[in-house]
Design a protein around this nucleic acid. Structure first.
Lengths: 187, 187
DNA sequence: CCGGATGTGTCAGTGACTGTCAATCATTGC
DNA sequence: GCAATGATTGACAGTCACTGACACATCCGG
């Protein structure tokens, strides 16, 4: 069985336990037992307990960065960033993946420890997008401003994804927010 | 001796050790020994090892929120946010506190675990500012947009504080970045 | 059949953190 | 002055995430 397959088996078992009992209340031993392996082997597939939950974010990051890189050359950066978020919007469109993501999000919000790791991941993700954006724009642009712009776009994404906004309204909510925050100087 | 005084004694000793040996390489036992108390007592003053480093951020948050609340009523939100950041700019102006903060920041950046907690704190701080901003603006404003605006302003702060920008240039760098990211719709 | 590469379980250890209990000390009421 | 009370502490044991070391199995090309 491939490494990826094992990881996904572990992840599925772990998420079930997390939903049942909560993240902090579930020990790594229990997860390992649920998939029939030793604790030591669990750590051969995931470098930490957090990783089980946050693993999918890594692939999402690569996806977003690729989308951003593929945007047409002349497009204003703010619009490119909005378009790079399309995969996220799509996932929100499908009820199955949306429910799954919502469950994950509830797990994350339920544990400060995990929430911290999650934010760290988002930070990494922003760095990836900043690099992609820098390549598109060229080195003449101010790197600090680019960094901030990606941060601003993520703030819109983060705000729109907040539970206060109901999931069906996600896409319009994101558009509205990004329109409101659109930098005045943007081409 | 007051609780605060003990906390600050612990914090001073801990920071010295962290600078010397690094955060991860310093055990709580060592910190406790350095101030002559048991490990158990250390945890009575700080709920975690992270807390020793991040404690000061809490007070900063209250400060920023108070500044924001005190801005004149008609001022555009983006400008109010910029002014709320003044205490941070001031700290960067004083060489002593700047060096101290830089040391702290190096400690934070040196440990992924601590960095994660730090970002979590920043998130909390943003929530505080969002609440303050909401009070100023009234409930007719879109809460999601307000949330995103605070996030955008923090992205500017975060980007400007990055080591790539030299400390003397911090204030102009922040102004430049916030000018570039100023929302087009802002009054 | 043998070589190493790869995957696994076991075990021992570290370090953060928690619960519990008993001793100490200052405060308060009498 | 003294006893009851509450807060602070140290000592100790325990849990849990995570790591390193080693032994064992399997598998695969030569």
């Amino acid at each position: 069985m491939s490494r990826r397959a094992v990881q996904s088996r572990i992840a599925r078992a772990a998420e079930e336990l997390f939903v049942d009992k909560g993240f902090e209340e579930t020990t790594v031993d229990e997860i390992a037992a649920a998939v029939g392996m030793s604790q030591r082997s669990f750590f051969r597939y995931f470098s930490s307990k957090d990783e089980v939950v946050l693993d999918s974010l890594e692939r999402l990051g690569e996806d977003l960065a690729a989308r951003l890189a593929a945007r047409p050359a002349g497009e204003p950066e703010w619009d490119s960033l909005r378009r790079a978020f399309d995969p996220v919007v799509e996932r929100f469109g499908d009820p199955v993946s949306r429910d799954h993501d919502a469950a994950i999000q509830r797990i994350i919000d339920g544990s400060p420890r995990l929430l911290a790791s999650y934010l760290c991941r988002l930070e990494l993700l922003q760095r990836m997008l900043t690099d992609a954006l820098t390549k598109r724009v060229g080195d003449d642009a101010d790197p600090v401003v680019l960094r901030a712009m990606v941060g601003g776009a993520f703030a819109c994404l983060h705000a729109a994804a907040f539970p206060s906004c109901d999931p069906d309204e996600f896409a319009p909510c994101l558009d509205r927010t990004m329109a409101a925050l659109r930098p005045a100087g943007a081409r």
